[in-house]
Nucleic acid binder design. Structure first.
Lengths: 226, 226
DNA sequence: ATTAAAATTTAGGCAAATCTAAAAATTTGT
DNA sequence: ACAAATTTTTAGATTTGCCTAAATTTTAAT
């Protein structure tokens, strides 16, 4: 009994935003947080929350914030699946760079057609991660975060592979391009400067100094898994 | 100076409809005709026409019907280009059948990204016709109708290739599938039954009897070109 | 524990796109 | 040509999603 298909674009965007905010803090999502992320007013958020609540997509008690119901979560995962699959398509098939995909995927994620998205999944050979290293939910909403660590938090001499970015803004991604940092690169952490937290790393053979902010937005998968 | 990018989905749908209606009769398009095709009310059409008129997309004089301006035509061709390219994509890359593509393409045609559509064009190797044999406008809106004739109107013994359908409803297309009629088939017209206008044709070697209605919705390209 | 600050909701409005019903203009039939 | 039929437009409502401003509830500070 999914009325998933009756959802408006705006409803879908709210559900997606609530999902993303809910991931971070485990608790209820604040009205203001939603408003800020969506660049809208808190009063508009309240209106929409009521509507979503009536459709059983969110749990809501006045002044207490919202959380997604299981139906809401399922819906969010469906939208995220579409978003990320389209991102892979844009990069793999249409030669978009990873900093160009988000805006277009924001539009494409609202296209309604199960057959379309499942065929796209097949065309792309069922990718498990999007161009920023984020996991792609499968048809049933199942997905697992990849085991990974922020580069800023691993001990000296850690060796691993760059598998994702925390900030996927175009600005940051272009910075990475300019410095030759890409997913799949081998990285080893040589030295940490205590003064400002910057790191000396070796990346695909080259030596590079990166600031703490940069390191705090790069994920690596280390080799010391069990 | 194209505000093409500021158009709403609804505006785009009106422009597209006016374009299609304008192709048939050369004259102005009637409010009622638009309303009927769009399954909306004439009063809604009038409202929208005024809006489009203010945006310089249509020529409008009260009670006199509408026609597209050159900006409106350019806009329409852009939307049709997108629609048809997406249809090719769905058939060629995602294994949709020709009767399944329209509904999804109706959604995809509204995605805004020049880079997306031009890359898609390249991925598909710059196709000139969509899965129903309709021409795809190029980047600048240029396209030429293919030289073709309705099967119902060619003389006996005409030989040609099936290159398009007039009616591209799922019902008709599925009928063609069931009878093994597809674009690219060799067709020769053997006999015309005067009583009901039905035809005996040979299609890719097989003999087939088709009604007048069917023949009046199939285009062939004959070999007797200059 | 009160009060000040912050967050949230309510109330009332607006614009887009639609509708119904009624009025106006055009077209048609004789 | 002129009344009747048809088409088109206007007027006034409705719904969705948003807004501002004011009221309410919660949280934080002393």
């Amino acid at each position: 009994m999914h009325k998933l298909y009756l959802m408006t674009r705006s409803e879908e965007n709210y559900i997606k935003t609530i999902f993303h905010l809910g991931r971070k803090g485990t608790q209820e999502v604040a009205t203001n947080a939603i408003a800020e992320l969506m660049e809208t007013k808190p009063s508009s958020v309240t209106d929409m929350i009521k509507k979503l609540s009536e459709k059983n997509l969110v749990n809501y008690k006045r002044y207490q914030g919202v959380s997604l119901t299981s139906l809401g979560t399922k819906t969010a995962l469906g939208i995220i699946r579409k978003h990320r699959l389209w991102e892979v398509f844009l990069v793999e098939k249409l030669d978009f760079s990873w900093d160009e995909v988000h805006e277009v995927a924001e539009q494409l994620e609202h296209i309604k057609s199960d057959k379309l998205i499942d065929s796209l999944d097949r065309l792309l050979a069922f990718p498990k991660f999007d161009p920023h290293g984020d996991p792609i939910p499968d048809k049933n909403g199942g997905f697992k975060e990849r085991d990974r660590d922020l580069l800023s938090e691993v001990p000296i001499n850690t060796v691993g592979v760059c598998v994702g970015v925390k900030d996927s803004s175009a600005t940051f991604l272009k910075f990475l391009d300019k410095n030759g940092i890409a997913l799949g690169n081998q990285i080893s952490v040589k030295e940490r400067e205590e003064f400002d937290g910057s790191l000396n790393i070796e990346i695909d053979g080259r030596n590079l100094q990166i600031s703490h902010v940069i390191a705090a937005n790069l994920y690596i998968k280390t080799n010391d898994e069990i």
